[in-house]
Amino acid sequence: MIPLSILDLAPVCEGSDASQAFAHTLDLARHAERLGYTRYWLAEHHNMPGIASAATAVLIGHVAGGTETIRVGSGGVMLPNHAPLQVAEQFGTLASLYPGRIDLGLGRAPGTDQATARALRRYHDSADAFPQDVQELLYYFEPAEPGQPVRAVPGAGVDVPVWLLGSSLFGARLAARLGLPYAFASHFAPDALDHALALYRREFTPSRRLARPYAMLGVNVVAAPSETEARRLFTTLQQSFVNLRRGRPGLIPPPIDDIEAYWTPAERIGVEQALACSVVGDPDQVRDGLAAFVERHRPDELMLTANVYDHAARKRSFEIAMASRPG
């Protein structure tokens, strides 16, 4: 059966705070481990009131320390915000603490607004230097050579699988050229999915890290005992996307009964386009929707995300999704 993994942003819901979000993240990771999910990734975002995973490496350590077998990683670390050496040291430390369980997914977007990006970035053109920064980071994970002036300690010689994340042809081409696994952000930016996936598979060059292309695709999945309940739970994510497009990101809102009264027709079109790779419904609908997605795109793995307001309902959604996964 196709491996399933989870992407979490440590959502901070209305009426809650970051401490509660972190408790929910660890509880969900333990639940995912019991259910048989392959990996649990956390995403770097900044200056977002509803997302508590800004200090991504710290939170990965918290989750890895509270679980036993599930892989834990970043989906991703936004490399332009960091010095490659520091990232190598952080993930070398994590992989030394939790051998065989740490993944490092890298993105080149800032994960925030322009003002915060300026506050974070090491230099103005850091996103343009992304390919060079990735190669520098990979170098720090190689065994240290005699006389090497700068090394990652810990990090050098430590096994840390590195993934490239993307939503365009740029990331697909770079992952193919470097021979790295590729995760496509189809859960919020699906437009280039088919072209990026085809390019990655066509141009892939085997490397010491990976012999054949390996693609993981993001999918929003909101599952509930009934379609009506699932559709209502999904309005939390729809509202969040509307709020972001209005320039008013906030805490994660509770679901509402009538999403049509919340958005304008133009907003509806934009949000539905962004969330086109979503499977929402009862167990049978989720099973059919995931099967159709896998049949069309042939991913090696699926990374599911579910921005559900109620923690118990979110856990139940991932439980239903695992029970409904395609063969």
Rank of each mutant, 00 (worst) to 15 (best):
V58A: 12
G50I: 00
S53G: 10
E44Y: 10
T56M: 04
E68K: 05
H46P: 09
G65C: 04
E44D: 10
L42H: 14
T56H: 07
G66F: 05
A52D: 06
S53W: 08
V58C: 04
E68L: 01
T69S: 07
E68D: 04
I51D: 03
A43Y: 11
M48A: 15
H45Y: 10
I60P: 02
H62A: 10
H62T: 09
G65H: 04
R39G: 11
T38N: 12
L59N: 03
V63L: 03
E44F: 09
I60H: 05
A57E: 06
R39L: 10
G61E: 01
T56Y: 07
W41E: 11
Y37A: 13
P49I: 08
N47H: 14
A54K: 08
M48V: 10
A57R: 00
G61L: 01
T67I: 03
M48R: 11
G66I: 06
R71Q: 08
G50V: 06
G36M: 11
H45E: 11
H62P: 04
Y37W: 14
T56W: 06
G65D: 05
H46C: 09
G66R: 02
I70H: 06
E68F: 05
H62Q: 13
T67F: 04
T67P: 02
A64W: 02
T38F: 13
H62L: 15
I51F: 07
T67Q: 04
E44W: 11
N47K: 12
W41L: 14
A55Q: 08
L42D: 12
H62C: 06
G65N: 05
M48Q: 15
P49Q: 11
R71T: 03
L59M: 07
